[in-house]
Amino acid sequence: MKTYLAPVNEIEKKWYVVDAENKVLGRLASEIASRLRGKHKPTFSPFMDNGDFIIVTNAEKVQLTGNKLDDKKYYRHTGYMGGIKEASAKELLVKHPTDLIAIAVKGMLPKNKLGRAQLKKLKVYAGANHPHSAQQPEVLDI
């Protein structure tokens, strides 16, 4: 018996809205990463992008358990010598709340062209509003 491989033009990509208010960051990110990859579909294959689009609202109200808000550090580099920058999760949540979810999801996707393409299907917004109402997204409970 041959394995069914969905043709690219037959892959149906839906839009979903996820409300991140009072959700734990890691549990939310793992479910979002799974949906972006398309692992919830019977036509999943690891080398094809057949996942859905995910819109995350209320990113500023996401929760972290334990002392992670103060203890968890995020690092980035400016590209210059000695240019490493460090920010705690609390600082990142105040300055760039959308980055907190995007970084968590990015770490759970493949580290290649496919993972970068799947990450582009993630839209994160700090508030409750988003500009994707024309796509008629469905509400996804996580």
Rank of each mutant, 00 (worst) to 15 (best):
Y4K: 14
E10Y: 14
L28Y: 05
T3M: 08
E21H: 14
G51H: 10
F47S: 14
Y16G: 02
I32W: 06
F44D: 00
K73I: 03
N58Q: 14
K73Q: 08
G66N: 03
Y16V: 05
Y80N: 15
R35T: 06
M1E: 01
K61M: 03
R37Q: 10
F53H: 15
R27K: 12
A87Q: 14
P46L: 09
R35I: 02
K41P: 01
N50C: 07
P7E: 01
G66T: 10
H77P: 02
K23Q: 05
V62C: 12
N67T: 00
V8W: 03
D70S: 14
V62D: 08
G66Q: 09
D52Y: 02
K72H: 03
T65H: 14
W15G: 01
G66Y: 06
N22M: 10
N50E: 09
M81A: 05
Q63W: 11
M81S: 11
I32N: 07
V56Q: 02
K14A: 00
E12T: 09
I11V: 10
K73T: 02
R27V: 01
A29L: 05
Q63F: 10
K85Q: 15
Y80K: 15
H77M: 02
R37L: 00
D49A: 06
T65M: 12
D49R: 11
K68V: 00
A20W: 00
K2Y: 10
K39T: 07
D19A: 13
A29K: 13
A29T: 07
K85Y: 12
F53Q: 04
R27F: 10
W15D: 01
D70H: 15
L28R: 04
A29D: 04
T65P: 11
K13F: 03
N22A: 08
M81L: 06
S45G: 00
R35F: 07
A87K: 15
Y80H: 15
R27N: 09
I32E: 01
R76N: 00
M48Q: 15
N58F: 14
N22T: 06
A20S: 09
K2E: 11
N50H: 12
T3Y: 09
K14P: 05
V62M: 08
I11L: 11
A6M: 06
M1T: 11
I55V: 11
Y74C: 11
R35H: 11
E86W: 12
K72R: 12
N9Q: 13
L69E: 04
K73F: 05
I84E: 15
V17G: 00
R76E: 06
P42R: 08
R76Y: 14
Y80G: 15
E10N: 13
E21W: 12
E60F: 08
A87W: 14
H40D: 09
V62S: 11
K2C: 02
R37T: 07
P46H: 09
K13T: 08
K61S: 04
R27W: 09
G82R: 05
I54T: 15
A6T: 09
G83R: 06
M81G: 04
I32M: 01
F53T: 12
V62T: 11
K23P: 07
L28M: 01
K72G: 02
D52S: 07
I84G: 13
H77Q: 07
I32A: 10
T43D: 06
G26F: 00
L5N: 13
D52W: 12
A20G: 00
W15H: 00
Y4V: 13
M81D: 09
A29G: 01
L36P: 10
D70W: 02
